[in-house]
Nucleic acid binder design. Sequence first.
DNA 1: CTGAAAGCGCTTACAG
DNA 2: CTGAAAGCGCTTACAG
Lengths: 326, 326
Amino acid sequence: MPDATIRDVARRAQVSVASVSRALNNLDNVSDRTRERVADAVRELGYVPHAGARSLSLARTNAVGVVLPDLHGEFFSEIVRGMDREASNRGYFLLLSNMHAGGAQSASALRALRGRVDGLIVMAPHLSEEELAEAMPSGTPAVLVNTRSNDHAGIRLDNAAGACAVAEHFVSLGRKCVVHVAGPAGNVDAQERADAFRAALEPSGVALEIVQGDFSEESGEAAIEPLLQGGAKFDAVFAANDMMASGVLQALRTAGIDVPAQVAVAGFDDVPLARHLGLTTVNVRIAELGEHAVDCLLDMIEGGETAEGPQLHSPELIIRSTTVPK
Amino acid sequence: MPDATIRDVARRAQVSVASVSRALNNLDNVSDRTRERVADAVRELGYVPHAGARSLSLARTNAVGVVLPDLHGEFFSEIVRGMDREASNRGYFLLLSNMHAGGAQSASALRALRGRVDGLIVMAPHLSEEELAEAMPSGTPAVLVNTRSNDHAGIRLDNAAGACAVAEHFVSLGRKCVVHVAGPAGNVDAQERADAFRAALEPSGVALEIVQGDFSEESGEAAIEPLLQGGAKFDAVFAANDMMASGVLQALRTAGIDVPAQVAVAGFDDVPLARHLGLTTVNVRIAELGEHAVDCLLDMIEGGETAEGPQLHSPELIIRSTTVPK
DNA sequence: CTGAAAGCGCTTACAG
DNA sequence: CTGAAAGCGCTTACAG
């Protein structure tokens, strides 16, 4: 037996489908008697409205499309959790679509969402600005997360603020000779962190050396070892992410160097491991980033207004036991 | 300017909407000439089909509803990743709906999905069997994950197999005196692990003591401390999850006990921290669990067949440095 | 191979 | 307060 439709309810309640619709949507131009009959029929038939049909009629789906690249672990779950929290608060669903490959495939993934969602949250770090412009549907409200574009509202992590906070923290601890283990070349987040860190240290007269990593734990270890073997003097290390910071800690431990007394260490991201290592780091508050993105998008959808330019999402410095005054 | 519809394309291509539809869906009863005109019109208008309308017509959404409780970290991201992988392989989207509160709220969350999805993947550990039966829509194919029910297809983690593997591993290492730190009372996974562990150890004549934890790191530490202070003798500990195992490791380290020489330690879950601790544990292969669930569901949706009873998903023992022969 | 028409399950002016 | 009818944007027998 197929699911009951609004016509079945109307028949059973002996009223028109229009009245059923009005009753179901709690409009006020419905008599109490009609309302009751409808409620009874709904109960008896186990009727559940067909959201798809409703959407087509209203030209409104109450769903938000979320298009993310292949993310792993924390970042993915936290940002989706935040998005879901805000979306369900405001009565929307999340339609998830991972964007695996690049270019053409991404474009078709985005297009397939037309008629399914009222707006889009897109994170596409691997697409060029042109590819992205090509892929984005024109009519649909959209918010880009950590993705540059001139044509769309966006929200980005404030890498500079995070790196600055670490720099100021090091300076306030009296550290004089600092190493930065940078993330992979070409990565925008890594670049912003390195640039801001350098700029923030500049006025203090603290010495800075930048070495290259690739965000992996091993690369953090590998970046520090030559410095130690070369006899370099430094009293603080800022790694561009926590995994590299973990590698740095291992290299220092292996070399018999006391953290934090001799060398202070800080990371970026605040992954769960960081807490376990007692690592001072920058918490990105990813869930809030997701909430914020959905919030912007729903404002656009409902208010019809454009958000006021690209928004920055501030991270927070978390001081733990790998950094102490010198 | 509103988005182009199939009628706009038809007008521009000077054919009927029926022909446009046929051309777009690559049916073979379309002349080359028509096909080209349609393709041109589509390109010129930037036409993208409206998936919502298509769904209503076909009574098929190509979307799978995923209803999960509030999950944190790894488990959530991994299971969603696996589901997404399989879904997009088979041409489906994932519609995410977190199930926050219990009972009535869950039921309405599930109903709201009618007409939006072709099937449901539901994980509802906090609902009673009656509440669940009440909440599940009757007409919709559904697969339950780690959730008991007689009325629906389901897939569950094989806790027993995991616990057994640990037991056999301990025995093969020559451990004679084993402690199990159990998970919270009332938790089904915890119960299954404890029961199977006991049963598997039984025939070997190995001594077993079970102490209570609640899945938190602190509870693992707290569970072991009294044993140490009481002078209890044991040479292996199996904690019902990794976080408690981590607490156990801390307690042992604090007490100056050598792991793994004196006491072997194993956990369950294989969270990222486990790798870092060198903890022997049981990897749940969560992503595969998600893939498997979607696979079952899509088989039901497409084949119309019911899956053959509740499926078990086998975890894998990962041997690291916290367990060695005695 | 093609088009006119009915239908998917809703909502909403419009007229009463 | 109520109902008949048109419409949302597609698909698909049906007839030609």
